[in-house]
Simulated scan of single mutants.
Amino acid sequence: MNLGTSEVITILGTISFAMSGTFSAMQKRLDPFGILIIAFVTAIGGGTVRDLLLGDTPVAWMRDIQTCLIILFTSIGAILFKTQVKKFKVTLFLFDSLGLGLFTVLGLQKGINFGLAPGICIALGTITGCFGGIIRDTLLNTIPLIFRKEIYATVCIAGGLLYYLLAFLKVDLTLIKLIVIAFIFVLRIIVVKYKLTLPKLVY
């Protein structure tokens, strides 16, 4: 079976966020069933919200059993090999950052396919990238990253703006996707490493 760029991005994004959800749940010492649930909502949460907003139902994961199987096997694999992963926090961060880039591009592209305005497409990309993490953190009784001082959604927005800049410059579409994914991934690492934050509003 020949997979297109979007299909590969979907698979990699699903794996990344399933791993992110699994490691978050293991940090909270959930049982295996709880871990699977958190992995599932992390991987499909953003895409589900996006599809519901677009009226594209049944939502993507309900039309393709492959997505559910990828999440299931990814989560089980992470549980089985957890002893090989010594630093959950670092692993969670890397998979979360990669998933953020992959799913932001997916959301952007879907908005474009629906013929929506650039601002709306960037919003859809941000929703696709962020909302799985919001649902994950809420279920784990943690303040979602997007609501903390750490820059999170802003990275998605910056990636969306770069996407349209490269499209305006007529860069090849596949190359645009790869550049934007790498940009979001690297920018998020830089933001966290140097503790960059948005300015606080003082009242």
Rank of each mutant, 00 (worst) to 15 (best):
C130I: 15
R136V: 06
N113R: 13
A158W: 13
N113M: 13
N113P: 01
S97H: 02
T138K: 10
L175E: 12
F114K: 12
F147C: 11
L124G: 00
Y164K: 01
P144Q: 10
G132S: 04
F147T: 09
L173P: 10
S97R: 04
Q109D: 13
D96L: 07
G129E: 05
I146G: 08
T142N: 13
D137K: 08
A182H: 09
T138M: 14
G101Y: 03
I179D: 07
G125I: 03
G101F: 04
T126N: 05
A117V: 15
L178N: 13
T104P: 06
D137A: 06
L162D: 06
V186G: 08
A123S: 15
G107V: 05
L166F: 10
F93N: 14
Y152F: 12
R148G: 14
L124N: 00
E150I: 11
L161M: 14
A182M: 12
S97G: 09
Y163Q: 01
F131D: 07
I184V: 15
R136S: 07
L175K: 12
D137E: 08
L100S: 07
F147Y: 14
G125P: 02
F103K: 07
I134M: 15
I120N: 00
F168T: 13
N141Q: 14
L175P: 05
I157C: 04
G107I: 02
Q109N: 15
S97V: 10
T104N: 14
Y163A: 02
A167C: 11
F168H: 13
K170W: 12
I151A: 10
T174D: 15
D172Y: 12
G99E: 01
L116V: 06
F185R: 07
L162T: 06
S97K: 04
G111S: 01
P118Q: 03
G159D: 06
I179C: 12
